[in-house]
Design a protein around this nucleic acid. Structure first.
Lengths: 353, 353
DNA sequence: GACGGTTGCTAAATCGTCTTAGCACCTGCA
DNA sequence: TGCAGGTGCTAAGACGATTTAGCAACCGTC
């Protein structure tokens, strides 16, 4: 692909100038180096008419940068949820004329290492390391050599030059609890984690922080969760089972916070099967804003993971990091938390009285 | 990223040989060109200990190939369904040591053109052109220059060197109808397209071919669909509305084929709300195998779009096309249809009486 | 009429790898 | 002694762009 392309030399020849001149004109340095307007015009015309496009491999070899970024995820590209993560990254890159290599490590550090090497061999200008679930992770060795950003992941130890971008789960947890309190609920069940602060699925930041935010707000109101169901996976069947247990218990309460929308889906099923109605008999609030949240009847009120923004922001930060290295300016290190916007639908109402 | 890397010249210097020798040894042509075992061994040792890795930009510049492929989709990367499409492509590429540039055109031919150019500028060895929905499309100009494959798309006119990979929708349509006939159903509703052959949403191949397969098998059994509901979009709300109309009509029939799983989701909702049970009161068969198919209770029987296989196959075909160009062998043109496997769950049973 | 300053352009090196052509040395044979 | 034929390695030139250093021509000045 691309052999037989028009090269700078072809343009120069056709315009009757040296390739130096052609290069200067086309890179906009013509005035600076006093190339006459006549020649500049001619070069541009010829370039246009031949359809000249620079070979980026060559430019990259010369400049040591490939105008490409790497995006390595554990399994994000394949996930049902996180296509938008990639989309955001893609668009941020395209806005600046960069292309994105995408790769998946399946969570295997060896594969990750291999992929990072393959990317470095291709002289990528920087790397986004993404996770499917927000998690704390070790940084692979050798990442210090080049600009990098963590996406949906936090470094095990704070890193001086590698920023990370995550959803603000803590604040979303608070907001979810506040939403129910403000609707008048006093008896709130948790499905997915809780009731105690340490009852969170191992390895996920989302569970820990959402729970923390919820408990914090409840405590401020002098409350505790009526019950809590910890599940390692957050699948519909778990939401279904937990909701059945909630309904079987005395004083079933008036609201449930599910830790993601799949759990909520299961909760809806259990409520329907029990002949109960959302939100009249039970209010629900959830997290993620998966597509199913909109399909459910009534629509599920949930706090969205801002996938697109996360991806977009990660690449922006990466570009800032690259620019900072180049210009010696300050690099945007630290943790960047993006708000999880409320998607208010119809699953919350005041309790029955 | 990558400045200050160990180069071939560094290795050669440290091993006390010319870079020609180092190159020959490391590319495995040492024996062929009679480099002594001593020297070969030394070069390899030095290369290893310095951690030498070839600069692929440079190799690419020299050889005119970048060991990278492009994957341009209309909007597939962001779709909820099709992450596996990318995953399959990714893995097929990684198996051969190639990396994948991913890009999204949003269905805009101008953007697509721009992205293709950006990929060609980077000397990609080939391009996968993917669609979210199986559709017939025009080929962008300039694609003839390099190896290319259509994924989930058919060329408007057959192309001598560009293969395409699509799900075998026609056969899946037949299989869906057969499944219901074999369960004993004689009154079958269609939701999404039909009842007549020309009642398909414009622009989608899936709708046309699924319907064609269904009608064919029904006709062979001397039947026609009891009713059909054409919708341009296939969202839950449409499935819900169509199902309500089915239930409102006399002689409601005993089975529904929904043209995708979101429609089926809506159908489940309408059936539940009417107090009817799947599969006792109504059997359902669908297409896609979206995650929700598994979450529904009872599980939805559906024919899966083989996303992973499609992606994997597309890249394999692309690599064959590339090899064919290189070696002058036969190129794998034409349309490749991959089977849509049945995911048999619990939504089909014999009719009531 | 020699010199300095501008104007307008180019030669050549460089990035890192691959590849063609060929050099220097040795052995064996006539 | 001379030459053919191997053996083991290297010089040098691509690939396609960028960039540094500098050359030729002209003008004006003293």
């Amino acid at each position: 692909m691309g052999r037989g392309r028009v090269t700078l030399a072809d343009v120069a020849l056709a315009a009757g100038v040296s390739s130096t001149t052609a290069s200067l004109v086309l890179s906009g340095r013509g005035d600076e180096l006093r190339i006459s307007d006549t020649v500049q015009h001619r070069v541009r015309e010829v370039s246009e008419s031949l359809g000249y496009r620079p070979n980026i491999l060559s430019v990259g070899l010369r400049r040591g940068s490939s105008l490409a970024l790497g995006f390595v995820s554990d399994t994000v590209a394949t996930s049902q949820l996180a296509g938008d993560l990639i989309k955001g990254a893609l668009e941020a890159a395209h806005e600046r004329g960069l292309m994105l290599f995408i790769a998946e490590s399946e969570g295997d550090p060896k594969v990750e290492r291999r992929l990072l090497n393959a990317l470095l061999d291709r002289q990528v200008d920087g790397v986004v390391l993404a996770s499917m679930f927000t998690q704390t992770r070790r940084l692979p060795s050798g990442l210090d050599h080049g600009p990098a950003v963590l996406l949906n992941a936090l470094p095990r130890e704070p890193h001086p030059t590698i920023p990370s971008v995550v959803p603000d789960e803590l604040e979303a947890g608070r907001a979810a609890a506040r939403l129910l309190l403000e609707a008048g609920h006093r008896s709130i069940h948790l499905v997915g984690a809780g009731p105690r602060r340490e009852d969170t699925p191992p390895g996920t930041v989302a569970g820990r922080e959402r729970l923390q935010g919820i408990l914090e707000v409840l405590a401020d109101a002098g409350l505790e969760p009526t019950s809590g169901y910890l599940h390692e996976d957050w699948l519909p069947q778990h939401g279904w089972a937990a909701t059945q247990r909630i309904l079987a218990a005395d004083g079933a309460g008036s609201a449930i916070i599910t830790f993601n929308d799949r759990l909520a889906f299961g909760a809806y099923q259990a409520l329907h099967e029990a002949g109960l109605r959302v939100p009249q008999d039970m209010s629900l609030v959830s997290f993620d804003d998966a597509p199913v949240a909109e399909w459910l009847r009534p629509g599920l009120t949930t706090f969205a993971i801002p996938h697109y923004d996360l991806g977009h922001r990660a690449v922006e930060l990466l570009l800032e990091t690259i620019a900072a290295r180049r210009d010696g300016g300050p690099a945007p290190a630290g943790v960047h938390r993006l708000p999880m916007p409320l998607r208010a639908r119809e699953s919350v109402a005041p309790p029955r009285s």
